[in-house]
Computed example of a mutant assay.
Amino acid sequence: MSVLTEEQIERFFNILNESSEIIQKAKDQSYLDSLIETLDAVQDGDGRHLGLTASDAQRVTNIYAKFNRDDYDAETLRKSIQMAILKAIRLDKIQANYQITPDTIANVIGYIVAGIFNDKKQISLLDPAMGTGNLLTAIYNQLDRSLGVKPTVSGIENDDAMFELAASSFEIQHIHAELFHEDAIQNVLAPVVDAVISDLPIGYYPIDANAKGFNTHSETGHSYVHHLLIEYSMNHVKKGGFGFFLVPSQLFQTEEAKQLLKWMQGRIYLQGLLNLPGELFENKAAQKAILILQNTGEKAKQSNPVMLGEFPSFKDQTAFKKFLTEIDDWQQRDLL
């Protein structure tokens, strides 16, 4: 990353941060809520509608005057917003489902997606659990840079605050997106796409009645939300299309996995399961992997072999690049 880009990231972060701190103090509210208001107001360049005193409204308006959208590319803006959200998570002690997918992981997923779709002039993407939209916008920007393709994107998010952050992030980056403020498990009528990309929430889905229409629902008690979302996602992928999911490394080693595997038979090809480096996680139980699924139909076929393995440390650039080359070879030789 160039020094200029780092300076721009810091510059826009400072604009977001200074405004959010003023609003937070004036309204005695969370940093997160203040950031949401800032992201909305900075685009208008006007703080008068924020419900502040005339003095504070003028202060934030003066801060917004430092922001000229034309000075920034989308990726710089995304990184600045990411920094501000990370500060909100830290300051407000926000629960785990707000955690942002690290850029190192987003970049790897984007690399795999770019390799599979490298001959496409257009790609449509969906994230059924988009959170703040960071993963979806990171991959959008990566595909724009690496393939010269501006994907058509859609996202679903049930949480109010995360949805508002995502909507503002897309808008400020000038990324047109179809966003749904809904619970995907209630079978949102989202578009059918070339690929689903998602860092799936992990755990039990609380509303059993909503899960009953899914083949992956549990026969007793609550169902795993990540199983339900995988099924939902692949139902919204075209024939021969792909799903790229961040999942627990132990996904297929639980008792509940039997129902997931049963649903996949005859419908879905398991094309890859790539464990992320163990050093990124607190313990083995928390380790995650990139799951690559493909719908049957069109020219899709079961890859032989399935791509299984574990990424070397991201710090070992030689080994890391060698592993990426192995993925490239597998895509060309066994998958596509």
Rank of each mutant, 00 (worst) to 15 (best):
L189C: 14
H181N: 14
L143Y: 01
T132M: 13
Q142N: 01
P201A: 06
D119Y: 04
R69G: 14
I15F: 10
N283D: 12
F12P: 03
I290N: 08
M307Q: 10
D28C: 00
K120P: 09
F252I: 07
L165P: 10
G110V: 06
Q186P: 10
E279G: 08
D316R: 01
I36M: 06
V153S: 01
G203L: 06
H217P: 05
V306G: 04
I36S: 07
A257R: 08
L273H: 06
N62C: 05
L4M: 12
K66C: 00
L165E: 13
E279A: 09
P102L: 02
N118D: 13
L32Q: 03
T220S: 15
V196T: 07
E326V: 11
T220W: 09
V149G: 00
I109Q: 11
L143W: 04
K299G: 08
L229M: 10
T61D: 01
M130K: 02
I175R: 08
Q122T: 15
M307D: 03
I172R: 00
N215I: 00
T220L: 15
N97Y: 01
V306E: 09
L50R: 07
S154E: 10
V192F: 11
D334W: 12
F67K: 04
Q142W: 07
A184K: 12
T61I: 01
M130Q: 04
S249D: 11
Q142E: 11
N62F: 03
E255W: 01
F281Q: 08
K25H: 00
G221Y: 06
G297C: 00
S303F: 03
E75T: 13
K120F: 10
E178A: 13
D160E: 14
I207Y: 11
L293D: 06
K27I: 01
M83G: 08
V108M: 10
D71M: 12
L4Y: 13
P277D: 03
L77V: 08
A285H: 11
L260M: 00
E21I: 00
E37T: 09
N107P: 04
E219R: 12
P248M: 08
Q24T: 07
M1D: 07
M83A: 14
E182G: 14
S55K: 15
A286Q: 09
Y64M: 03
K321N: 15
A319F: 10
T5K: 12
G131T: 05
L276Y: 02
T216M: 01
H226S: 05
S34Y: 02
D316G: 03
D160T: 08
Q82W: 14
F214T: 09
T61R: 00
W330P: 07
L4N: 14
I116C: 11
K93N: 06
I290S: 04
A289Q: 05
D44R: 12
E282T: 11
V225W: 05
I327Q: 07
A41D: 03
R48G: 13
N235R: 12
S124C: 10
T104M: 04
L291F: 05
H49T: 15
F163Q: 04
L291M: 04
G45D: 05
V113K: 09
L229K: 03
K120Y: 13
F67W: 09
E7K: 13
F170D: 08
Q122G: 15
I81H: 06
D119E: 14
F281E: 07
F281G: 05
K299D: 13
N283I: 05
T325N: 15
T101Q: 04
F117E: 05
P128R: 03
D33R: 15
I172C: 00
A84D: 07
A211V: 09
G221R: 02
Q142F: 12
